[in-house]
């Protein structure tokens, strides 16, 4: 019993760390490839890691949330640790909130059985909306700048980034499927 519990903890940790690593990789990639899409130091008009957020919670659930939290804590830079932890918590929890909302609305099973492309698009929009809104509310509450400048670019960045990420994954799966058919 104890060894099964320990094994489960280890598996959760490994999966969370793997997700954190993937987040860090795509965050760095976004900084490098989409530098021209920067709105400010925290907001991009195209943010590829947003796709990692959605996939992490879709596939791994709450383990995904932990992984995103760890990854975001590593990549977020701020003056205080408390500020970073707050921002990371929003980054990690907002996709889960979007997923729970959409699963409730579409009455989807936890295994995502029957998930359609249109629903995926709705998840993307809701995910972008929740993250942008909560992030901007956090910036508003914790800074002297009392305006929502970054809401639209952040929302656009999250949605475009997620769609681009999903498209890349779909094309990769197509390529692998075609490669497998040709080479066996």
């Amino acid at each position: 019993m104890r060894s099964a519990w320990t094994s489960q903890i280890k598996q959760t940790l490994v999966e969370a760390l793997a997700i954190a690593l993937v987040w860090v990789f795509f965050f760095r990639l976004n900084l490098f490839v989409f530098a021209h899409f920067e709105f400010n130091s925290r907001v991009y008009w195209l943010f590829l890691p947003a796709g990692i957020r959605m996939m992490a919670v879709f596939i791994f659930g709450w383990k995904g949330v932990w992984g995103l939290f760890i990854g975001s804590t590593y990549t977020n830079e701020a003056e205080t640790d408390a500020y970073v932890l707050g921002l990371s918590a929003i980054s990690a929890l907002s996709p889960m909130l979007a997923l729970l909302l959409c699963r409730w609305f579409y009455n989807l099973a936890s295994t995502l059985k029957g998930l359609k492309a249109k629903q995926l698009l709705v998840f993307t929009l809701i995910g972008g909306l929740v993250n942008s809104l909560l992030s901007q509310l956090y910036f508003y509450a914790t800074s002297t700048d009392k305006v929502f400048f970054g809401f639209v670019p952040m929302f656009v960045g999250d949605v475009l980034g997620t769609l681009l990420f999903f498209y890349m994954v779909a094309k990769l799966l197509e390529f692998l499927s075609a490669y497998h058919k040709v080479h066996g």
Partner: peptide, 21 residues
């Protein structure tokens, strides 16, 4: 198992993503 459920989720997600393209 947790891993197999994650894989099932991945399959369902992959099918939905394919529909996009």
């Amino acid at each position: 198992t947790s891993t197999s459920i994650s894989y099932i989720k991945f399959l369902n997600l992959a099918n939905a993503m394919r529909e996009l393209t």
